[in-house]
Design a protein around this nucleic acid. Structure first.
Lengths: 219, 219
DNA sequence: TAAAAAATTTAAGTAAGCTTAAAAATTAAT
DNA sequence: ATTAATTTTTAAGCTTACTTAAATTTTTTA
């Protein structure tokens, strides 16, 4: 399948998983930077290939075949991210940019080699789960955003949900990294700010950031 | 530039370097598995982009700009080969196949990371030279094919010039590997065979193979 | 060197993946 | 509940990268 098809299927998958349920062509078009008309055309075409179900004016829905394809691409993307992060010590932003290209030109054979080499990791450096060889995500994510954490409790960072370079730069500078521990020292509910302590530094996060940093409580 | 353009330019570069001088569209078409007409079209198009000089019925010749592009792609290809070979212990055939895809989706940034990681190697696992960041090949190849070596002398394997899986499998099985040492025990000039000794094994190579294995005499 | 063979070019056409503009349907707002 | 705004779809058209078939030029060979 072409890069265009793979990206289209991936965009639908991500839209259905991460966000509100409005997976209409225009929405996907926006994410891919193409026109609504192009997205409608593509949707129709992929319906004939049984990758998704298409009904005029309705939301797009991947078939099992389509979802499997999406998960395969997501797997390759996240494996590359994990690999580049570990091997070349690249930033979260850089690994994403490179993985976005490499994911489409990676054989299953190579993907499996990368996975094995890394010890078949279950998460990438953003904390996103890596589908297994069969395109299944076996982990269950019960983490919550820092905005919803409780004062006085400690948490392990589990996910950095963004693709914004400035956010990642901020995280890297402050030790906000997958697996690291933070203590929530104060929730300023009125101002929607979260104060945390990490590496003996105090950081005040506004809602933009506290909402996209996910973590698990340490018992 | 598109994958099609990159492969076209690369094919011209390789044709001019490795073989006879007949770099006409039909020849490139054969290598790329496209029609002669398609190759002519592409040649004309690339001429307008100043990547090559095109004259009807004449051989194609890359401009400096075209050659620079070719060398950049070759660099990425060979860096990937070196990297995959080292990191995942893949076969010479497998690394070629994967590199053929990855080379087109690799940023200069990532290529430089790979190069640094490997210690800026000058050769890939086939013994082919890796162009540097500026697209220059600084090494001089004075190696000769095993067919042209002398009885009783020892050589270091410097290059395995092929892209045939069976040949690479044969090499791997017999320790015929870049950097390894062989002793030429006999040249059967009449029958065009070369007998070598490697790892205490004696191997009789026919001309097909002795001509594509290159080596340097050990003094 | 002239005819035959081979290669190259031109011409016409196709599929993928886009575009813009207009028409149709849905959704939101008063 | 209409009207207005938005979104989706349709229609027509473009570019890239191919194809096959025919015309032209070059190369080979007898």
């Amino acid at each position: 399948m072409s890069v265009a098809v793979e990206n289209f299927v991936k965009a639908i998958y991500k839209n259905n998983n991460n966000e509100s349920n409005d997976t209409k062509p225009g929405n996907i078009a926006k994410k891919l930077g193409i026109s609504n008309a192009a997205a409608t055309d593509m949707a129709k075409k992929l319906a004939t290939k049984h990758l998704l179900n298409y009904e005029k004016y309705k939301a797009l829905k991947l078939t099992d075949k389509g979802e499997k394809m999406a998960l395969n691409i997501v797997r390759k993307h996240r494996l590359w991210e994990a690999f580049l992060y570990k091997t070349f010590d690249m930033s979260l932003h850089d690994i994403h940019r490179e993985a976005e290209l490499l994911e489409h030109e990676t054989s299953n054979f190579l993907a499996n080699k990368i996975s094995e080499y890394l010890g078949n990791p279950k998460f990438d450096p953003h904390g996103d789960p890596i589908p297994n060889i069969n395109g299944k995500i076996t982990t269950v994510d019960v983490s919550i955003s820092l905005a919803n954490t409780q004062e006085g409790k400690s948490y392990t960072i589990s996910r950095l949900m963004s693709d914004d370079k400035e956010f990642f730069d901020f995280c890297a500078q402050n030790g906000l990294k997958y697996g690291n521990t933070v203590l929530v020292t104060k929730q300023f509910n009125k101002n929607k700010m979260t104060q945390i302590s990490i590496n003996n530094n105090t950081i005040l996060l506004n809602e933009d950031f506290s909402k996209i940093i996910y973590a698990n409580e340490i018992n």
